[in-house]
């Protein structure tokens, strides 16, 4: 979808405002891991709606298939068998773009308008502007974008921005048979999640909680975790994701300052020439050689 949606709040590599007159409510997808049975219907629905097909892979002896996100698999189920105080638990996490309020991909991207953020919070790639450099992959704290080998553009979950724009819920939400994935305004989703956490706590999951990491300004995909004290147990969900000091340094205020610095070197050189004049061979030495002739 192009800028014509008129609800863009941020564009990559752009220093002027984006067309953003339309105001849409902030949305969120809530993934309740305690309700997920790992059936992968969402994974299938995602490919079905988006018309992507992954290569047929090989059996690695685990349920994870494909083993990782790809340019065709924008969401994958990750299965962790974990020993907790409750015994052996199967923690199944639907992985995919978290749609950060403060997206590292958008910050890192050098191509104007290749990454956009809508006022509803969805972070989307506009592949027509993508140059395939992979900076977004470097900037992402969740390791989500994948560069296509076919067309050298990056792809990831769009949170079905096309469906959401016309009032539908994302394909994965629509298909989930247990109601583990729900979609609505962020406010409603937080309230819903809080209720679920209360229920889980009553059922003995003392450390149940919401995963809506503030290091990236909160996300528009949030999890209910049975063990919110151990996010890493969910196949390496980062505890405190943030854009991080390196990417901040790389993409922050240093660049305009460096640009100014370069301009100053050139201006300084010019001023030197104007005030001191050229560095020529002295009359004295010229004379020495003339006399010789």
């Amino acid at each position: 979808m192009a800028l014509q949606s008129l609800d863009i709040i941020r564009r990559s590599a752009t220093t002027t405002p984006s067309p953003g007159q339309r105001q849409t409510p902030e949305v969120a997808k809530l993934i309740d891991i305690s309700k997920c049975i790992g059936c992968k219907a969402c994974q299938v629905a995602c490919m079905e709606w988006n018309d992507t097909r992954d290569d047929i892979g090989t059996n690695h002896g685990v349920l994870d298939n494909p083993l990782d996100l790809t340019e065709n698999s924008w969401t994958v189920m990750r299965y962790a068998e974990v020993e907790t105080e409750r015994g052996l638990e199967w923690l199944i996490r639907k992985d995919g773009c978290m749609h950060c309020a403060n997206p590292g991909c958008l910050k890192a991207c050098p191509a104007p308008g290749a990454v956009v953020q809508y006022s509803n919070g969805i972070v989307d790639f506009h592949e027509e502007n993508c140059i395939g450099c992979g900076y977004c992959i470097t900037g992402c704290p969740f390791n989500i974008p994948r560069l296509s080998k076919k067309d050298s553009k990056v792809y990831k979950c769009t949170l079905c921005s096309d469906r959401v724009a016309v009032g539908l819920e994302p394909a994965c939400v629509k298909t989930c048979p247990t109601g583990a994935i729900v979609f609505g305004t962020k406010e409603d989703m937080i309230r819903h999640a809080e209720e679920r956490v209360r229920e889980l706590t009553e059922r003995g999951f003392a450390k149940a909680g919401i995963y809506d990491p503030q290091g990236v300004g909160g996300t528009h995909v949030i999890y209910v975790l049975q063990h919110a004290d151990k996010p890493e147990a969910y196949c390496g969900l980062p505890r405190n994701p943030s854009i991080g000091p390196m990417v901040d340094l790389w993409k922050g205020a240093a660049k305009p300052v460096a640009t100014l610095g370069l301009a100053m070197v050139a201006v300084g050189a010019f001023c030197h020439y104007v005030t001191k004049g050229p560095n020529e061979v002295s009359e004295e030495i010229e004379k020495e050689f003339e006399d010789e002739k």
Binding site: G132, C133, G134, I137, T138, M246, W250, A254, A258
Partner: peptide, 23 residues
């Protein structure tokens, strides 16, 4: 940071550092 041929060989932290060093 050469994504097409080499970046996949390195962990994200190294690529981030290299991006800063290159710039």
């Amino acid at each position: 940071i050469w994504r097409a041929y080499f970046a996949f060989l390195f962990p994200a932290a190294v690529i981030r550092l290299a991006s800063v060093v290159h710039a």
